[in-house]
């Protein structure tokens, strides 16, 4: 097992998680034992063909231990998200959902583990170079430059020409192009952040709670946009969502996090049917 060589495991503190391994083993049964990522080795993961739609992992994380300074938040997390698919990450507040996305962008301190994107190791790639690997990220908060105009926000990412092109997907924003972003409403701001993500035609898009603090109507609009992007571009979308019930209905695959551990990964419907997990972690 890879764990034996994991430096974080030597002090014995970070490799507890025995409870969670049980949970994962349980889930294995529900999944008919054919694809649970946590128990796969690298080769299987690459050849993973069991999801509802064909796909291969665009992002593949193995044995990730990370956190902030000395404070470890994720303990030995394995994660993969496929091209074509919409992968949801759910879990209670503080369970480490945002941290998992941040780790991909080098925004937290990684102790051990590896992060691969389309076959390339990007674990130690500086934040500003991650975009070049075809990944884009929308933070939970502060995801647009408030003092810059909309046009400037879009141009910062990829120049003027691309900015115009991205606007085609967001006609709602056209009237405000010259205004500073701080004058936008919450929903408009999220749309702008999405437009900024799209500019470089990313292969992988990471969304951190894009609907938090929006009205239900706006939230639906944003989710519809995300699903449409997924349909049109056949790219890989990873979505952290608060509205679990909804997310489980439209995602292709789900990861359930609890205190920095993956307690379930796989088919969302199976999770819904598992009364134990659903009541313990999702309050359903």
């Amino acid at each position: 097992m890879a764990n034996e060589h994991d430096p974080a495991c030597n002090d014995g503190t970070d490799c507890r998680d025995t409870d969670d391994s049980h949970a994962q083993a349980d889930m294995h049964d529900h999944d008919n034992g054919d694809h649970d990522n946590n128990n796969n080795n690298d080769n299987d993961a690459v050849l993973d063909t069991t999801s509802s739609r064909p796909g291969s992992p665009a992002v593949y994380i193995k044995n990730l231990v990370c956190g902030y300074g000395k404070n470890r938040v994720l303990h030995n997390v394995d994660f993969s998200a496929n091209t074509d698919e919409l992968t949801a990450i759910v879990g209670s507040n503080g369970s480490g959902k945002s941290t998992l996305l941040k780790a991909i962008f080098g925004l937290c301190d990684i102790t051990s583990g590896s992060i691969m994107a389309r076959g390339k190791n990007i674990t130690r790639v500086p934040t500003h170079d991650i975009l070049k690997h075809g990944i884009s990220y929308m933070a939970q908060r502060k995801n647009v430059f408030q003092e810059l105009t909309l046009l400037e926000n879009l141009s910062v990412v990829g120049g003027r020409a691309n900015a115009d092109q991205a606007m085609d997907h967001f006609p709602e924003l056209k009237p405000f192009l010259g205004r500073p972003a701080r004058t936008l409403s919450g929903g408009q701001r999220q749309l702008l952040a999405m437009a900024m993500m799209l500019i470089n035609k990313p292969y992988v898009m990471l969304f951190d709670e894009p609907t938090a603090a929006l009205s239900p109507k706006n939230a639906d609009l944003i989710i519809a946009k995300i699903r449409k992007i997924n349909e049109e571009n056949n790219n890989c979308i990873v979505l952290v969502e608060q509205n679990v019930m909804q997310a489980l209905n439209y995602c292709d695959r789900v990861y359930l996090l609890a205190s920095g551990n993956v307690v379930y990964s796989g088919d969302p419907q199976v999770l819904l049917e598992d009364k134990d997990l659903a009541s313990k972690y999702l309050g359903l």
Binding site: H128, I130, K142, F145, L148, V156, V157
Partner: peptide, 24 residues
């Protein structure tokens, strides 16, 4: 200038600038 725009962006929100590919 584009450079100046990136400068203003980096001043306002360094993390966001970095995730958008600006070498702050």
């Amino acid at each position: 200038t584009n450079y100046g725009m990136r400068m203003r962006a980096s001043i306002e929100n360094e993390t966001l600038a970095r995730t958008l590919g600006i070498d702050t």
